[in-house]
Simulated scan of single mutants.
Amino acid sequence: MLQETFFFSIFKAFFIAFGVIVGGSILGGFAAFMTNKPMLTETYELSANLRIWAIIAAIGGTFDTVYSLEKGLMDGDTKVLFKQFLFILSALWGAQVGFSLITWLTQGEIKG
Rank of each mutant, 00 (worst) to 15 (best):
residue 2 L to C: 03
residue 4 E to S: 14
residue 5 T to D: 10
residue 6 F to R: 08
residue 7 F to L: 13
residue 7 F to D: 09
residue 7 F to V: 08
residue 7 F to Y: 15
residue 7 F to A: 13
residue 9 S to Y: 13
residue 11 F to Y: 09
residue 13 A to H: 06
residue 17 A to V: 05
residue 18 F to L: 12
residue 18 F to K: 04
residue 18 F to Y: 11
residue 19 G to M: 07
residue 20 V to D: 10
residue 20 V to I: 12
residue 20 V to G: 11
residue 20 V to A: 09
residue 23 G to Q: 13
residue 25 S to C: 03
residue 25 S to H: 05
residue 26 I to C: 07
residue 26 I to E: 04
residue 27 L to F: 12
residue 27 L to N: 09
residue 28 G to C: 04
residue 28 G to R: 02
residue 28 G to E: 05
residue 30 F to C: 05
residue 30 F to T: 02
residue 31 A to N: 14
residue 32 A to S: 08
residue 32 A to N: 01
residue 32 A to Q: 00
residue 33 F to D: 12
residue 34 M to S: 01
residue 38 P to K: 03
residue 41 T to Y: 08
residue 42 E to D: 11
residue 42 E to V: 13
residue 42 E to W: 13
residue 43 T to Y: 08
residue 43 T to G: 01
residue 43 T to V: 07
residue 43 T to N: 04
residue 44 Y to G: 11
residue 45 E to Q: 03
residue 45 E to L: 12
residue 46 L to D: 00
residue 46 L to H: 01
residue 46 L to E: 00
residue 47 S to A: 06
residue 48 A to Y: 07
residue 49 N to T: 05
residue 49 N to R: 05
residue 50 L to E: 11
residue 50 L to N: 10
residue 50 L to C: 13
residue 50 L to R: 06
residue 51 R to D: 15
residue 51 R to L: 11
residue 51 R to N: 12
residue 52 I to R: 12
residue 53 W to V: 15
residue 53 W to N: 14
residue 54 A to H: 01
residue 55 I to C: 15
residue 55 I to G: 14
residue 55 I to K: 14
residue 56 I to Y: 01
residue 57 A to E: 02
residue 58 A to L: 02
residue 58 A to H: 09
residue 59 I to N: 00
residue 60 G to Q: 08
residue 60 G to A: 03
residue 61 G to W: 04
residue 61 G to N: 06
residue 63 F to I: 08
residue 63 F to A: 10
residue 64 D to F: 10
residue 64 D to Y: 14
residue 67 Y to S: 03
residue 68 S to V: 14
residue 69 L to I: 15
residue 70 E to P: 01
residue 70 E to D: 04
residue 70 E to F: 14
residue 71 K to L: 01
residue 71 K to W: 00
residue 73 L to H: 00
residue 73 L to M: 04
residue 74 M to E: 14
residue 74 M to S: 12
residue 74 M to Y: 13
residue 76 G to N: 11
residue 77 D to R: 00
residue 77 D to E: 03
residue 78 T to G: 04
residue 78 T to V: 12
residue 78 T to E: 13
residue 78 T to Y: 09
residue 80 V to L: 14
residue 81 L to P: 03
residue 81 L to M: 04
residue 82 F to W: 11
residue 82 F to M: 12
residue 83 K to P: 01
residue 83 K to I: 04
residue 84 Q to R: 07
residue 85 F to D: 07
residue 85 F to A: 15
residue 85 F to R: 12
residue 85 F to C: 15
residue 88 I to G: 08
residue 89 L to V: 11
residue 89 L to P: 06
residue 90 S to Y: 06
residue 90 S to D: 03
residue 90 S to V: 02
residue 92 L to Q: 02
residue 92 L to K: 00
residue 93 W to Q: 03
residue 94 G to K: 14
residue 95 A to T: 02
residue 95 A to H: 06
residue 97 V to N: 11
residue 97 V to C: 15
residue 97 V to F: 10
residue 97 V to D: 10
residue 99 F to Y: 09
residue 101 L to Q: 00
residue 102 I to A: 03
residue 103 T to E: 15
residue 103 T to N: 15
residue 103 T to R: 15
residue 104 W to P: 03
residue 104 W to Q: 02
residue 104 W to M: 08
residue 104 W to D: 04
residue 104 W to N: 07
residue 105 L to N: 01
residue 107 Q to T: 04
residue 109 E to S: 12
residue 110 I to Y: 06
residue 110 I to W: 04
residue 111 K to W: 13
